[in-house]
Amino acid sequence: MMRRHLPVLITLGVFIAGYLICLAQFPSFASTRVIGNLLTDNAFLGIVAVGMTFVILSGGIDLSVGSVIAFTGVFLAVVIERYNVNPYLAFLLILGIAALFGAGMGLLIHIFEIPAFIVTLAGMFLVRGMCFVLTTDSIPINAPIYGQVTDIAFSLPGGGRLTFVAIVMLLVFALGIVLAHFTRFGANVYALGGNRTSAQLMGVPVGKTTVKIYMLSSFLAALAGIAFSFYTSAGYSLAATGVELDTIAAVVIGGTLLTGGSGTIIGTLVGVLIQGLIQTYITFEGTLSSWWTKIAIGALLFAFIVLQRGLSAASIRTR
């Protein structure tokens, strides 16, 4: 029982230790303002990381999510500002387009048995290219709903704000947890990550599940893109480059095995928060370059992968 939850517990331990270190240096870390901002600033990363967790749990990878986020922003900016499309309709449209795109990638992966890495890499380039087809400029979004949404927030005691996008992220995590651990779809995802052939022999609908997984990932990437556009109030083709890698890092730091089959959604939330924490610390520090975030995440990622190897080796030995 303990061993199975060990990766998540370690992630949690790292987060708490990190938080305490920050707190010791900067007492204001205890304020709800910092915590509220931590959630808001990382909302889009959190949303897309939920989808990525499903993909990685199934033994796959999705490199296209950063491009999908950027495309979502550009698409929204173009259709809302240039074509005066109703923003709500625009949201529905982009979520639908992204879901179709994800389903297409899932189909390719399943039918032609092409590695997910290749298919989603192609998807990444394709979608990034599509951004530039729409526009090469950074287009501000001035629709009134953007102002309104940014204003929706629960005031936390102590001056912090739990913003709308943060709430959406937490909701996505809650739904992700239910989906992963309490539905047949969730069990099928874990089954695929465990052993594809066995899963097939046991009657798991491998094809359908694969398509749904990548649909979910792209759908959530578009949702993250919407959240990101609230955050930046603009659409820009070069936005969110490298986010797919940040997301993968968050998932792995959250205790999900990169080879699939083992991990939790809640762990990913902690993984996202650890990344946010490092970033916030560096902002507070003031003198460090923001690249130190990358260095710290790199070190953490390495430590976690080594840890996972160690744990799985240990569990084989004690069998």
Binding site: R184, N188, A191, G193, S198, M202, V204, G261
Partner: peptide, 15 residues
């Protein structure tokens, strides 16, 4: 040919 990463119960009842 079962799934070692799932619980015994899930292996018995998957699908």
């Amino acid at each position: 040919n079962l799934l070692p990463n799932l619980s015994v119960a899930e292996n018995l009842f998957i699908g």
